[in-house]
Simulated assay, not measured.
Amino acid sequence: MITSLLVANRGEIACRIFRTCRDLGIRTVAVHSDADGTALHTRTADTAVRLPGATPADTYLRGDLIVKAALAAGADAVHPGYGFLSENPGFARQVLDAGLTWIGPPPGAIEAMASKTRAKELMGLAPLLKVTEDDLPVLVKAAAGGGGRGMRVVRRLDDLDAALESAR
């Protein structure tokens, strides 16, 4: 049973998780950089722990500091939120190795899904070596990502080559 949850994130996502925890009777712990000391997520949580530094690289991306904060605050679980360390299997392992509950996919699943191309292959969705009319519509996206930029829905085979070139 989780009694205290640290959210390794900030802003709206942390506030939403805190709201759910409050509804479930779970104590909440926020982490914050120097720049976020008075941010809404720090005021909404039951406890806020300072991560020394001002940049995300010095704070929210430091799994070691976040695990220390969780232990110091008496949290028994960590939720990564999204972004930052949420897709970092090493961070998930750090949390588990510290004896804390990890709220998220197991590290092996995070690793398996790290490559969009490999993830789609594991799900039987890619690669489509030869797209046919029966496959349409298809979504063409650059394998290396790009935050959704360049994604194209292809509804006609005549448009496929242009969409592939655009994704490259």
Rank of each mutant, 00 (worst) to 15 (best):
26 I>E: 13
26 I>D: 13
27 R>M: 13
29 V>I: 15
30 A>T: 15
31 V>E: 12
34 D>G: 14
35 A>S: 15
36 D>C: 11
37 G>Y: 14
37 G>I: 14
38 T>S: 15
40 L>M: 15
40 L>Y: 15
43 R>E: 15
45 A>I: 09
47 T>A: 14
49 V>A: 10
50 R>L: 15
53 G>Q: 07
54 A>Q: 13
55 T>C: 12
55 T>H: 13
56 P>G: 11
56 P>A: 14
56 P>S: 14
57 A>M: 13
57 A>D: 14
58 D>P: 03
60 Y>R: 04
60 Y>K: 03
61 L>K: 10
61 L>H: 09
62 R>C: 00
63 G>A: 09
64 D>W: 11
64 D>F: 09
64 D>R: 14
65 L>G: 06
65 L>R: 09
65 L>P: 01
66 I>R: 01
66 I>G: 03
66 I>H: 03
67 V>W: 02
67 V>A: 03
68 K>L: 11
69 A>E: 07
70 A>Q: 06
70 A>P: 00
70 A>V: 05
71 L>K: 14
72 A>W: 03
72 A>K: 07
73 A>W: 11
73 A>H: 04
74 G>H: 12
74 G>V: 12
74 G>A: 11
75 A>F: 10
75 A>E: 09
76 D>S: 08
78 V>K: 03
79 H>R: 04
79 H>V: 01
80 P>W: 05
80 P>G: 04
82 Y>T: 03
83 G>C: 10
84 F>I: 06
84 F>W: 03
85 L>P: 06
86 S>W: 06
86 S>L: 02
89 P>Q: 01
89 P>H: 04
91 F>W: 02
92 A>S: 02
92 A>P: 00
92 A>R: 00
93 R>Q: 15
94 Q>V: 09
95 V>D: 02
95 V>H: 05
97 D>Q: 14
98 A>Y: 10
98 A>K: 07
99 G>R: 07
99 G>D: 11
99 G>I: 12
100 L>P: 02
100 L>Y: 10
101 T>L: 08
101 T>V: 13
102 W>L: 04
104 G>M: 02
105 P>G: 08
107 P>W: 08
107 P>S: 09
112 A>D: 10
114 A>I: 08
115 S>M: 10
122 L>P: 00
123 M>C: 15
123 M>S: 14
124 G>L: 08
124 G>C: 05
126 A>F: 11
126 A>K: 08
126 A>D: 12
127 P>T: 08
127 P>Q: 09
128 L>F: 06
128 L>S: 06
128 L>E: 02
128 L>N: 02
129 L>T: 15
129 L>I: 10
130 K>C: 12
130 K>Y: 05
132 T>Q: 12
132 T>M: 04
132 T>S: 14
133 E>F: 00
133 E>M: 03
133 E>T: 06
134 D>S: 12
134 D>K: 14
138 V>I: 10
139 L>N: 06
139 L>D: 11
141 K>V: 04
143 A>Y: 06
144 A>C: 10
144 A>Y: 11
147 G>K: 07
149 R>N: 08
149 R>T: 05
149 R>G: 04
150 G>F: 05
152 R>C: 06
152 R>A: 06
154 V>L: 07
156 R>L: 03
156 R>T: 01
157 L>V: 00
158 D>V: 08
158 D>E: 10
160 L>E: 00
161 D>L: 05
161 D>I: 00
162 A>W: 04
162 A>Q: 11
163 A>G: 01
163 A>V: 02
